[in-house]
Design a protein around this nucleic acid. Structure first.
Length: 204
DNA sequence: CTGGGGATCGAG
DNA sequence: TCGATCCCCAGG
């Protein structure tokens, strides 16, 4: 059997409805090529945000500001913003231009040669144990620390060579759990939307 | 549980 | 211009 090399997700993947993209991103592999090495991690948790109908979204209702402008742009670009003065959140723009929506990547599990660097970025001991690996980037702020994502990467094209997602397969026997989103108490009726997707299997 | 920390954006 | 609010995390 031939060795499969995962391909980079094309723009057509991102240029679809945000719920479809959010669900299908679970199990794919986020890659950040940095000066110090290639950082790689499997996406285990996502949330959809839709500025046309969702009070949880920065761009609701079609609200275009300096910050949210990127959400109105071409699909497949990174939307990264600072939160609580100290952490960043990483999103991927979806849908067609002019339609403000994106997927928040909430959690990943690190893999590959960049493990030590990702642990160091998180100021965790190296090498990490199996259990520490699962906790290393299990939140949006921690994910940005470990994957070295800051406002410097805001607007990056995920169809470029620096930051992209590989089309990897879900692990055998895994399922995707659908739940309400986290920490959006202000979002009124949108709080109940089942727009969070979590990878579930025996080990995660 | 709480404090830290700074950008953001709408109100005034 | 000001200040309430924010898709969070580490430490106690």
């Amino acid at each position: 059997m031939q060795t499969m090399i995962p391909s980079k997700l094309p723009r057509t993947f991102y240029a679809r409805p945000v719920l479809t993209v959010a669900r299908e991103l679970v199990g794919k592999t986020l890659v950040h090529v940095t000066e110090a090495g290639v950082l790689r991690a499997v996406i285990t948790e996502t949330e959809a945000y839709d500025g046309t109908c969702d009070k949880g979204c920065h761009a609701y209702p079609y609200k275009c500001t300096d910050r949210t402008r990127i959400l109105f742009g071409e699909a497949g670009h990174a939307y990264i913003y600072l939160i609580y003065g100290m952490y960043h959140c990483f999103n991927i723009v979806t849908n067609e231009e002019g339609y403000p929506a994106g997927v928040l990547i909430r959690a990943v599990v690190p893999i590959g040669d960049g493990l030590e660097q990702m642990a160091a970025l998180r100021k965790q001991p190296t090498p990490p144990t199996e259990k520490q690996l699962l906790r290393l980037m299990n939140g949006p702020g921690k994910l940005c620390q470990g994957m070295s994502l800051t406002k410097a990467e805001n607007g990056f094209d995920l169809c470029g060579d620096r930051l992209y997602v590989e089309d990897t397969q879900l692990p055998e026997g895994s399922q995707i759990l659908t739940t309400p989103r986290i920490n959006i108490d202000y979002a009124e009726e949108a709080k109940a939307f089942l727009w969070r997707f979590v990878l579930c299997n025996k080990t995660i």
